[in-house]
Write a protein that binds this DNA or RNA. Structure first.
Lengths: 325, 325
DNA sequence: ATGAAAGCGCTAACAT
DNA sequence: ATGTTAGCGCTTTCAT
């Protein structure tokens, strides 16, 4: 494998001249420049990028931490990240953690060992205190509304978004409202629960523990939700569902088991994935791809503008009325 | 940032002893080993992984080339790859190409510049001839049935799978059968078309160009297919659809526009994603996650067994009868 | 404008 | 068992 020394020797110049030519440094005499390129092409030479990484102390690789890539919620974020990364010549290294703390730590360690320049965390179980141990190793972006001053954050205001859904359902005459959330302990879920409680309190409605479903992530979870609701003596008349996938599952399994949407149960869901359109589900659109883009941008700007202070950015949502309420 | 020399100095040993301790090399006196670990912990030292990469000429990173991560077909493959990669301490670098040849080439170049040890290609537009230019740069795995002796291949026999679907539809009394494919030029599509033609020929049925839909990838494509079929004077009675997403779109948009499945149109689709179960769609299950695992395994074995000859492996499919036929 | 040479931080061959 | 040292292939400073 040819290296820069070989090129230098054959072109009759020094390695530094080769390096300058290769990196587009201006002050090189035209004939030397040509000589170098000629040899480079002749040998089909390519830089060893690891040597560049070592020498520069930078890899142009951004890490992406997520529980699983195989879920529309995350793959939409990633799509956004990937699009921006490509534009700026960055690469993406994936850490599929399945919410395993050890795997999450491994991703953070990659920051410390310089395998990645920065890390975008789409979702996590690890504590913020632990995260903070790594802030000096490189920029970290969290897709959550957090206050820690040293961590970047691009987020959806889930309190407001949930409130939007609640208000809509209430305006449509519902007061027996339940919800379906993902992981109940996540920061996003906490915000949603707060909105839920506040909204019910505003209309003096009581809270029913068995109208609150947790760990709802996939279409298949709709089956469980539908059969549980059917077995309930006192049923909710509406559900706020934090994922189009789950909402679709409820609509479809409801059809199978005899729970009609919206007649028996109104639904407002979140995401606005294609499936919600196909099923005519009223949904609150989350700008996930945009979130990915912004997350990358934050890291990019951090390096481009000499390590600026971490930013926080809130993204807008909108309700799309369809036929599930 | 502390380096190995610093550790050596503080622990009162040589750099090679530090290296040996760090890498679990056996012949080190217990007290020196302890001295090293003590300093390592004290300084919270971590190896600079780029230096390791440069020194070893290997990165333990595998590239994954795909058009988009945001599609269940690909995210399932990736999930399989990621699972195996993690088990063996490998990392994944993603190349979202959107079928852009330049981006595909960029992924291949990463192989040449040693940024990645190997490359898994989930789908591509680039020609096999071009691919072959890179086989000396590292192992390449293709998720297609190809013959090139220097490229690894793990694949689904799409001829056989398509034939399975055709036979099933024919056995159920259909002869007016159409299909929905993704990119018509892909190797996988070629195999499917061949099976389609052969199957129709077997029953002396004629081929209708307007029963053959191409570029069907997403749920939204179902809309187009449904309205086209509704406008046809002579309609197919059955459709073989190469994606559950598209099949779901057909079922759902069919419901909206008045094309009933299976009454007006029978459907056999592919993948067996959760949505096909929720919609009771008869589907041919493709072992996509397994395909990802096998793809990674091939690369892993290649390095573990000193650069063995490229293998080819065919994966089984099975038809799951539900209610769309 | 160009070259010499000193790193970057680690691995591994070689010597003892 | 342990240390010395020569790489790995590039970037970058410092001379000239």
């Amino acid at each position: 494998m040819a290296n820069i020394r070989e090129i230098a020797k054959r072109a009759g110049v020094s390695v530094s001249t080769v390096s300058r030519v290769l990196n587009g440094y201006p002050y090189v005499k035209e004939e030397k420049r040509k000589a170098v390129w000629d040899v480079v092409h002749e040998l089909n030479y390519k830089k060893n990028i690891n040597a560049v990484h070592l020498s520069k102390g930078k890899t142009n690789i951004i890490g992406v931490m997520l529980p699983t890539i195989n879920h529309p919620y995350f793959s939409m974020i990633v799509e956004g990240i990937a699009e921006e990364a490509l534009r700026y010549g960055y690469h993406l290294l994936f850490f599929q953690t399945n919410y395993d703390i050890h795997k999450e730590l491994e991703a953070l360690e990659m920051l410390r060992v310089k395998q990645i320049d920065g890390l975008i965390i789409c979702s996590h179980t690890i504590s913020l205190e632990t995260l903070e141990l790594y802030i000096s190793d490189g920029p970290i972006v969290l897709c959550e509304d957090i206050q820690e001053p040293h961590i970047f954050s691009v987020y959806i205001d889930h309190y407001q978004a949930f409130m939007l859904g609640m208000d809509y359902l209430i305006k449509k005459g519902h007061s027996k409202i339940g919800y379906c959330l993902g992981r109940p302990t996540s920061i996003n879920s906490q915000k949603r629960k707060a909105a839920y409680k506040d909204a019910l309190q505003n209309i003096h409605a009581s809270i029913h523990a068995n109208w609150m479903f947790h760990h709802c992530l996939h279409m298949g979870d709709g089956k469980r939700i539908v059969s549980t609701i059917l077995s309930l003596a006192e049923k909710p008349t509406a559900l706020l569902v934090t994922s189009d996938q789950v909402a679709a599952g409820i609509v479809l399994w409801g059809k199978t088991y005899g729970l009609r949407v919206p007649n028996d149960l109104a639904i407002v869901s979140f995401d606005n994935h294609p499936i919600s359109e196909a099923l005519h589900i009223t949904t609150i659109e989350l700008p996930l791809s945009l979130m990915g883009k912004k997350a990358f941008q934050m890291i990019y700007d951090y390096f481009a503008n000499n390590y600026t202070q971490p930013k926080k950015e809130k993204l807008p949502v909108r309700l799309i009325e369809r036929a599930s309420v």
